[in-house]
């Protein structure tokens, strides 16, 4: 039932990107990855994406700037911030994301959050 749902993972850490790709593919999602925000925004134009998992600290354009651009063009698209920083959760600039998940070896929280926001 999730076959037609596509997740875009934007993260500069190759290991995390591949881990998420593996996990969410296992769960039956289509996964597109981008190693920086520019490529991520490009993918959004090219493909139909149902949810974005977005890192914050990235070279070039950071996740907070990218979030602003995504929200301004695709208001309905759920974005989940997935960062190793905890304190940006208190920063209102991240509040337009549907959720803020701190990176952890235990992916349960992220998976549950994705499920909750996937229509």
């Amino acid at each position: 039932m999730t076959d037609d749902k596509r997740i875009l993972v934007i993260d500069d850490d190759v290991h995390m990107r591949e881990l998420l790709e593996l996990e969410f593919t296992d769960l039956g999602y289509q996964v597109t990855t981008a190693d920086n925000a520019f490529l991520g925004l490009q993918s959004l134009k090219d493909e139909m994406v149902d949810l974005v998992i977005l890192d914050i600290k990235m070279p070039g354009m950071n996740g907070i700037e990218a979030l602003e651009k995504i929200v301004s063009t695709k208001r309905e698209l759920p974005v989940i911030i997935h960062s190793a920083y905890s304190h940006f959760r208190e920063n209102y600039l991240t509040w337009s994301a549907v959720a803020y998940v701190i990176k952890s070896g235990n992916l349960d929280e992220l998976i549950q959050t994705v499920k909750n926001h996937m229509k």
Binding site: D13, H15, M16, L19, E23, K57, S83, A84, Y85, S86, H87, I102, K103, S104, G105, N106, L107
Partner: peptide
């Protein structure tokens, strides 16, 4: 805060692959 970020990222990868 900075150190925590630098450690937490790789740790999440280790933990993720390990689980």
């Amino acid at each position: 805060a900075h150190m925590a970020h630098e450690v937490r990222g790789p740790l999440a990868t280790i933990g993720g692959y390990a689980s």
